[in-house]
Design a protein around this nucleic acid. Structure first.
Lengths: 339, 339
DNA sequence: GTGAAAGCGCTAACAG
DNA sequence: CTGTTAGCGCTTTCAC
């Protein structure tokens, strides 16, 4: 049988209330001697608080919900790890909710989290333009729960809300600049879904770099991918009749597709074509030709998200915070100076 | 304000007890008309049960705990996905607990899960021989909680307990057989930690294949890795003075290390050396030289683990079940017939 | 057919 | 300095 606060109270000849005050280190005027007695007793009787009771009484669960599209994607897994590591540190828990990009699953999860008195939600939605309306209503639902929320890369939640973001415009800019500075002029771009704000920003950055060099932007060398390996492959199929010396894939997974697409046409990296990716997926460093890529500090973003949520849960009047993270170009072997 | 069962009772002019019976579809002798009234009311008033109250009252949380070393590892992420998909289907939740291989974190988590009235735990421990004793005590702790447990690849929990397992002896066997049938005789092995039962079994299978061919087993061509990319790399450094025409890395991550290790010595796959991996990591299919590997149905294992736990939670007298999954050799481009 | 009452374990006012 | 009391929302037994 589990030992409760009442058991301890009885053993100590005190009331449950006193025991509760002591065990929670609440400001009170309880003598040191009773405090010690209670703590010792709790220890030796093997007391563990019942979360269910605390939860019912206080409507606090000390639990965060993480809502992401897919845990097998290294980006989300890394984010989850950051979040979870902080949770663990603070003795909180994390409920994992993966939506597989289904807005209805997302809705289901939001409701379930609500029923569990969740103390905070970290959500990463990537709306495809098609189903936007459901995402909109999910957002309303979530906001109506009056629970701290933190989002990643402001793609959706327009209210003043917590967020961890990267300056993706800059990310696109520095990567493109790198290629330009190596002498590349015919640069192909394989972008993310145009519906995503973060994908849009990256592209803006690319264009800004072209302007800086006074070069004309060529839409014909832009292929809209969807962040999957296949769309990298397809991008090369699209580009194969065109002339280009470099390709910037706006995430690493697509860059892997580019690698293999190029090898299909007997083009090698970086001899024939330079390639740049975006994300710094853990594999990018260990590919046979290690990939030059823009690193997002995803793990840190996850940690920060957890910190924001836990803080907000503990300070109901906390103002929304938006933390911006810096992007860095990681130079490896997939790009070279053009002759 | 949240709407409770009492609110509905009042609105319907009934008692909370009746409402509870109806909403839980309990066997009772309540008239259809009141049943319908209650259900309609619940719907329109937007009733959602309070998990905290149910949890406190029944000590059931409808939540599973997943304890794994690292969510960034594709193997565990896939397992998590399987588990979570089933949870979602059944309206359960999953708390993610990653230990980073620290037995103390594991202990902390087990205690936290206990306090949360968790209804089942899926645990994957990979004890390094050094800290075995703590793992042992964690195991005792977990068993003492009287909560359904399911483990993966019987590495630790010797009691009659639920498990999802693969026949790794067979996995080692079929992969080695494949290399032998291609004419390879000097085969190098980069193994997992010898402390792990599953790693041991794989190796046994390899040896059995050698026996079948009446070949002498050569320990000198065996390098003990630890399932990391680096140890694949190191394995090749160890092997470089030796003679071999094929290497079997006992997981895919090490196989990637082998790829890069070989290219360091200007050996190419499969022309100079054939390589076989184990796991079928999602990247293995999209490498420039796609990797021949032994596929573990990890996603299915995760799903089955969840089913076992949920079933056991609902049927306290359920017998332990051990589900064995089949392994398959996926033939790709990294092996070739020897001349 | 339905309701009353008790209680899961804890906390928060308030009373001594 | 400490105890009493009430109640969070739900389930369950037993009574009507």
């Amino acid at each position: 049988m589990k030992v409760t606060i009442t058991d301890i109270a009885q053993a100590a000849g005190l009331s449950p209330a006193t025991v509760s005050l002591v065990l929670n280190n609440r400001p009170s005027r309880i003598s040191e001697s009773t405090k010690n007695k209670v703590k010792a007793l709790a220890q030796e009787m093997g007391y563990h608080p019942s979360f269910a009771a605390v939860n019912l009484r206080t409507s606090r669960s000390y639990t965060l919900g993480l809502v992401i599209p897919d845990i097998r994607n290294d980006y989300y897994a890394t984010y989850a790890k950051g979040l979870e590591d902080v949770c663990q540190e603070m003795n909180w828990s994390m409920i994992l909710c993966t939506t597989n990009q289904h807005p209805l699953r997302e809705k289901q999860y939001i409701e379930a989290l609500y029923a569990k008195n969740i103390d905070g939600v970290a959500i990463v939605t990537t709306p495809s333009s098609a189903d936007d309306s459901i995402y909109d209503s999910n957002r309303e639902l979530l906001l109506s729960m009056k629970v701290p929320i933190v989002q990643t890369d402001l793609t959706n939640y327009r209210e003043p809300i917590n967020a961890v973001v990267c300056d993706h415009e800059k990310g696109g800019y520095i990567a493109t600049l790198h290629l330009l500075s190596l002498g590349h002029r015919k640069i192909a771009f394989i972008t993310g879904p145009s519906g995503l704000e973060a994908a849009q920003s990256r592209l803006e950055g690319c264009k800004r770099a072209f302007h800086k060099y006074n070069l004309k932007w060529d839409d014909d060398l832009v292929y809209e991918g969807d962040y999957t390996y296949e769309s990298g492959l397809n991008g090369i199929d699209y580009l194969c009749d065109r002339e280009f010396t470099a390709v910037f894939a706006l995430n690493d997974l697509m860059a892997y597709g580019v690698y293999n697409g190029l090898s299909k046409y007997n083009l090698s990296v970086p001899e024939d074509v330079s390639v740049v990716g975006y994300d710094d997926h853990f594999l990018s460093a260990i590919l046979t030709v290690p990939l030059t890529t823009v690193r997002q500090p995803v793990y840190e973003m996850g940690k920060e998200a957890a910190r924001i949520l836990i803080h907000a849960a503990e300070h109901p009047d906390a103002k929304p915070v938006i933390t911006t993270f810096d992007l860095k170009l990681i130079l490896r072997k997939s790009t070279r100076k053009i002759d």
